[in-house]
Design a protein around this nucleic acid. Structure first.
Lengths: 233, 233
DNA sequence: TGTGACTTAAAAGTCAGACTTTTTGTTGCT
DNA sequence: AGCAACAAAAAGTCTGACTTTTAAGTCACA
């Protein structure tokens, strides 16, 4: 079962979406629903549903008598998880990772500050557990296990901020961290300093020290930016 | 033409989308496509297209033999402009404005810092123009004109950051600022301090002083948060 | 030559109906 | 009580006919 059966239209999207975000059809290209339906061997109804979804992502615009035209990349819903996944799978993955990392660097420190104020006892416990897990797996080529704890750590912080917009960045951060581990230069064990910082953040949140939590998370962010050579001279 | 003719399915969405985001159908509610099609007096095909769009926004999930079930609010694509508009039009508008303002406060300072490094000459000019426009309209009940300049100012900053994720928050910030002017206590002229800060940010960006631009924008952000009573005791 | 009104045709949009597939819940047997 | 077969409900799919919008071409007239 290569393609999970979420319906025909979804299978079409899995192919057409990445093609568009990869720039395979340049901005302004005109597609015709009937032709697409033939190409993908589905009925027009199914193709129409797929087009409607692409339209809701602002990837294309459908106009009578002209067809389905590909919109400029600047119009795309870059926060749509689906679009993000498609773009991360494509050629401009590095560029995408930079954008996402910057966003993360801007938001996470603020989220950590809020978490220090609003985190529940359970969330504090979860955070500490994650930090300890990171420490435990930080040496000896246990990158995958480390990644799991790292992702969970950041997800808990974002959730604990109490802001739904921040919380929704959890999946996005997960993608970035996974991408870093899997596609970046990541042969060695993680930076010990980063591990320590995470432990300290958990501590600061537990103590309710918002300013410290924010400052420490900002240090983590700086590290993430430096990894991608985004730094001020 | 009350409802612009973007197709039948769009008209259905204009009604069904807000109903769902307003919590009119509680989490877990089950809708049936056929019934909805009858209720809205459209064909099943049209209703299916509408459902597909709602599905892509993670507002609902469609499963065979059970129907179209409303997903928990935590799953919704809260960054989808359409969803944001629906929610801003609904009852939890205040809550929504808080979330958005927090996000804005986290991102804009960083964006301003980047803008100071990467803004083009045209963008610097536009920024200065906006700031001057704000000064010119800051007194004498010209709130609407002031708003236009304010929105444009922040949009230029976000665009000048060179980060597409930041740039895409332009519309969102516009919504927040418009909401603030139209639905908040905004009978008086804008705070003179805020106006001055905007002028200074334009200055800092022009000089390429990233740290100053960031710090000043952070002050603007603090003001925005204080307006909504989001402040540290 | 230019311009404005009229015609045409291409593509999306809409609809109705028949059929398929998956999944759930029930029933009946051991 | 547990399991297996069965029935029905709802989404999913396909097809074909029809409508609507609108870009583009055409023709007459100034």
């Amino acid at each position: 079962m290569t393609t999970k059966d979420r319906g025909l239209h979804a299978r079409v999207l899995d192919s057409l979406g990445p093609a568009i975000t990869a720039g395979e059809y340049p901005e302004g290209s005109v597609l015709r629903t009937d032709e697409l339906a033939q190409r993908y061997e589905v009925s027009r109804s199914v193709m129409r549903e797929a087009v409607r979804v692409l339209e809701s992502m602002h990837l294309v615009a459908s106009r009578r008598r002209v067809g389905v035209t590909v919109r400029p990349a600047g119009d795309w819903n870059v926060y749509d998880p689906q679009v993000i996944r498609w773009r991360l799978a494509g050629a401009d993955r590095p560029r995408q990772l930079r954008s996402l990392t910057m966003l993360r660097s801007a938001v996470e420190p603020v989220a950590a500050g809020l978490a220090a104020r609003y985190a529940s006892a359970e969330q504090c416990a979860a955070l500490t557990e994650c930090a300890l897990g990171m420490v435990a797996t930080s040496r000896g080529q246990q990158l995958e296990a480390y990644l799991v704890h790292d992702i969970e750590f950041h997800r808990v912080v974002l959730n604990a901020s109490g802001n739904e917009m921040f919380a929704h960045l959890g999946d996005l951060v997960a993608e970035v961290l996974a991408g870093r581990t899997h596609h970046q230069v990541m042969f060695e064990d993680p930076d010990p300093a980063a591990v320590t910082l995470h432990v300290s953040v958990a501590e600061a949140v537990r103590e309710g020290n918002a300013e410290r939590a924010e400052a420490l998370t900002r240090e983590i962010a700086v590290g993430a930016l430096q990894e991608l050579d985004i730094l001020a001279p």
